[in-house]
């Protein structure tokens, strides 16, 4: 029983983290069709900001958390301003490759300016403890991950449904030109979407740093690959799909960890992807996706 509960919490926590990152990708994709491969480097910028701040003498974990989120949001907005704005109206492949290029640049900058080797960051280690509920021992990090992700998603839903800017983001996901006809500034809508996307990545970064206790240049890359896969199984561009896809991915991974014998543990990632690709054979448009009508985005 204890074991089963522990694995359930594992799956939920993994799933929550994938959902956060996948949501960030989906927010940006839904309004401007950008497949943001540089999302992992937003997590990277966030993590390295915390590393640098700690190296410069920062000791407060709370400030470190705020810094992580703010740095990620800023990095996302900056990436958009510098690299993605010139290709805003270009075909999807152009944007995708641009983002891929940005990802390579930033990853290598970490290598060049800091170090190719992982750097230790202990400022957030306090978040990772064991909590005891009667007979159960659970990881505080996983519980927090679950709660914080839940609250973040709730806040996102409220923002998208209540605020004018949130409405504009939802509207822009279908028809950007008409949103501009409402007098809403395109740049503001896009900057907001990127800031949200970055903030979500920053929250994920906090948990990653706390769990690993170190940062490395490719910190966010493999996580974002998984988040992309979550988006694809959820239905690309659908926010609910991204969140659901992330959770599903968490459960598949933990399920495989439980089911696979120790010596085959290395095949976990490969099998996860195989399962997902197999799912796509049956639902090419994803679980919650719908066939996008071509011409939907035309002026």
């Amino acid at each position: 029983m204890d074991y089963a509960l522990q694995q359930l919490l594992n799956a939920l926590a993994f799933g929550a983290e994938y959902s956060l990152v996948a949501l960030g990708l989906a927010v940006v994709f839904s309004i401007m069709g950008l497949v943001n491969f540089a999302h992992g480097e937003i997590i990277g910028v966030s993590a390295y900001s915390v590393f640098l701040a700690a190296a410069l003498g920062l000791t407060s974990p709370i400030v470190a958390v705020l810094l992580a989120v703010a740095a990620a949001a800023l990095a996302a907005v900056a990436f958009e301003r510098v690299a993605f704005r010139p290709v805003r109206y270009a075909p999807t492949t152009t944007g995708l490759l641009t983002a891929f290029g940005v990802s390579i640049v930033v990853q290598n900058l970490f290598m060049l300016l800091i170090s190719p080797k992982p750097q230790s960051v202990s400022i957030l280690n306090g978040l990772n403890q064991m909590w005891f509920f009667g007979p159960f021992a659970v990881s505080s990090l996983q519980v927090m991950e679950l709660i914080v992700s839940g609250l973040t998603i709730l806040a996102l839903v409220l923002f998208l449904n209540r605020s004018t800017l949130g409405l504009a983001i939802r509207a822009a996901s279908r028809d950007f030109a008409t949103v501009r006809l409402m007098g809403i500034k395109a740049n503001r809508v896009i900057a907001t979407a990127f800031a949200i996307s970055g903030a979500l990545a920053g929250i994920a970064a906090v948990f990653i740093i706390a769990r690993r206790g170190s940062v490395s240049p490719d910190l966010g890359f493999s996580l974002v690959l998984k988040a992309f896969v979550a988006c694809v199984i959820g239905g690309f561009g659908s926010l609910a799909g991204a969140a659901a896809g992330g959770m599903l991915l968490g459960f598949i991974e933990v399920g495989l960890l439980v089911a696979l014998p120790q010596e085959y543990g290395g095949f976990k990632d490969a099998l996860t992807y195989v399962i997902i690709v197999a799912l796509l054979v049956y639902r090419p448009e994803g679980l919650l996706g719908q066939r996008v009508e071509l011409g939907d985005k035309e002026i």
Binding site: G101, V105, L112
Partner: peptide, 12 residues
Amino acid sequence: GLSGVALGVVIV
């Protein structure tokens, strides 16, 4: 990392 940066910049 210099060559990586250069490759990325070329793409962007």
